[in-house]
Design a protein around this nucleic acid. Structure first.
Lengths: 242, 242
DNA sequence: TGACCGGAGTCTGTATACAGCGTTAGAGTT
DNA sequence: AACTCTAACGCTGTATACAGACTCCGGTCA
């Protein structure tokens, strides 16, 4: 039996509330009355409170001195910092993998993934969901390649930071044409990271990991300056105070 | 009213359980029956479960597929990775502080702290608790100096990783004579980090932040190879599988 | 003798009850 | 009309009740 199945109510609360918050169902800074939200999600306060604790931990909600939670608000600087942090952590994972020497099977698996990604970004038969799934898988694998559960966990956490996920600017929408080029650049970096790890070039692997996250920052700046109308469609960007 | 005061039971559960686990009250891998532990701590299951969720998040406990939690076990490699991670994050905080330019008041406050630390490590009137408090304060301040709540939060989290805290090899015991020298080296690094931030030398600040965490690794290796009898006195080290 | 089955007991996940604090609306006063 | 005080309501933190799942032990059958 899956954990997801075991505590089904908690999972439902977590997914549901996160989705509500990220999609801007509540205004930034708005208080979240537990009874109210629990009823809205169709479950009791117990699993909801669990989910809220978790979202506080993820930084999406924040505790109020007087009790309860409210939706967090982020400055643009915080979003940039979150992206930077993801880059630092993924860069570290890449460096550690390179330094210690990655498992050959894993390197092969990553190579397979890269080939699949090559196919996925082919403009002819571009499939959006497939790309996001493969891209996530790549980042998962990169985090695991350091050979440390703790490193993997912290990388995963960084990806959950608001608007810091590699797919934040892709998720839940069709491909924005302006981002097509970014996909190709990302793929070049993916391959470079893979090569650096295989060649055990730690410093290069780390630098590439950091730079790779900067793509998200580029996309962020593009959206904010060039296409602010897209901001609503990027999960979490609704919480950014302008 | 303080949050600590408001949810007193939860705080008590968190502190109490963390302390129990870190001090090896349970064997690594041992299952934690909620009813049992709740009774032992003198509170109900509700705040205890909250605390357990949190400790799972911190990595001290792990979920069991069939339900409930057990005490996590760490390989030495994981402890090393946790320390490395703290170094990477604190290094990043230092770099960001240097790059963006730290608040002069904060730099001054850190300088004051450094002077206090100078006094604290004076062998004549060495006060153990004071040193640990000031050292923690320094790391807090460093994390905050990046000017990002997210960065500060992740640094704080890294310090809670098992045996990765700067004071892990000092806490809850008198000064181990062999570590006295390490305190002086730490202080030299503290000052160097401060200088690098003030001079806006980002790369140097980052490198120093990383190297500073390595002190913990040195201490770890010292304890494990030279003085394994001390291992019991270092919180969390009881959970390391040999 | 060993393996399989069943049932009692234990434990978890979830819902709900309860008490205390915060907040707000409304009446009364200036 | 504005301000104050109070009382009622709402909300949170905590405890507890409950139902289903798992565990473990003993018994039975091959």
């Amino acid at each position: 039996m899956d954990r997801t199945d075991r505590n089904a109510q908690f999972t439902r609360a977590l997914m549901g509330l996160r989705s509500l918050v990220l999609n801007g169902a509540f205004a930034g800074g708005e208080r979240l009355p537990e009874t109210n939200v629990a009823e809205r999600l169709g479950l009791s306060r117990t699993p909801l409170r669990q989910a809220m604790d978790r979202l506080v931990d993820e930084g999406l909600l924040e505790r109020v001195e007087t009790g309860g939670c409210r939706v967090a608000r982020f400055s643009m600087d915080e979003i940039v910092a979150a992206i930077e942090l993801r880059g630092v952590l993924e860069g570290t994972a890449a460096r550690l993998a390179a330094e210690r020497g990655a498992d050959p099977d894993m390197l092969q698996a990553m190579d397979d993934l890269l080939c699949a990604l090559d196919a996925a970004i082919d403009p002819e038969r571009f499939d959006f969901k497939t790309y996001v799934r493969l891209n996530d898988a790549f980042h998962d694998m990169l985090a695991e390649m350091a050979g440390s559960q703790i490193v993997a966990r912290e990388c995963a956490r960084a990806r959950r930071l608001p608007a810091a996920s590699p797919g934040a600017f892709l998720q839940g929408q069709d491909l924005i044409p302006d981002f097509r080029d970014s996909l190709r650049r990302a793929q070049v970096q993916h391959r470079a990271i893979h090569d650096a790890i295989r060649a055990r070039e730690g410093a290069r692997a780390e630098a590439l990991g950091r730079e790779h996250a900067r793509l998200a920052r580029t996309n962020l700046e593009y959206v904010m300056t060039q296409a602010p109308d897209l901001a609503d469609r990027v999960p979490g960007l609704a919480l950014v105070e302008t």
